[in-house]
Amino acid sequence: MTPTDCQSWFPSLSAFIDGELAPARRVQIEHHLATCRDCSARVSDLRATSGMVRIGMEMRADEADFSDFFDKVLAKIEPHRVPLWERWKLTLSELFAYHRGAMISSLATAAVAVLIAVPIALRSRPPTGYASAQLSVQRVSTEPEAHVAPVVMKGDKGNTIIWLVNHRHVLDSAAQAAQANENHNENLDSQPEPIQKQPLKQQRPRGGEL
């Protein structure tokens, strides 16, 4: 076979090595290579060259740093960030365009749920200031000038009675007793009679019947 005949095969040899030929064409080339020494040598050269190129590429690939390759690629292919409001509008328009029925039914359900839940929540919520279950007395104080003392009586179910016991009478009776004692001492000088001890008269508080 002359080199002129072989030249018609040359363009297909590279594709033959890379396995890119149709089966019929591949069979033809294999028949030709079995009879043509020049073409067989050319195919061997091409295979050796292809192998060297592949090894060289692999070595280059091993040397390359792919740590941020993904981010770099994404940065090149992602468009600029759309503002939130624009995204909202876009999303809602998409929703109403492609899921109109689902969106309308969802919104209707949400509205009904709000209409039911809000009055229930407001009704179950106690009025302002009534978070505690029972009324409770925290502190009771009286002014000293008022001469009253508080008596706190806790009942059941949060009921509490606060009674102000008037103790002015205690002071009055003490003053009266002191006055009577002074008078009595004066009388002792004039009337030397034996002193009779009298029990202190107990008075009930005027504030109320305890």
Binding site: Y130, S132, V137, R139, A146, K157, G158
Partner: peptide
């Protein structure tokens, strides 16, 4: 002022 009472309101009970 004669007396001062501080209480916490509750859903139940009364102050007398």
């Amino acid at each position: 002022v004669i007396s001062s009472t501080v209480l916490t309101l509750g859903r139940e009970g009364s102050l007398f």
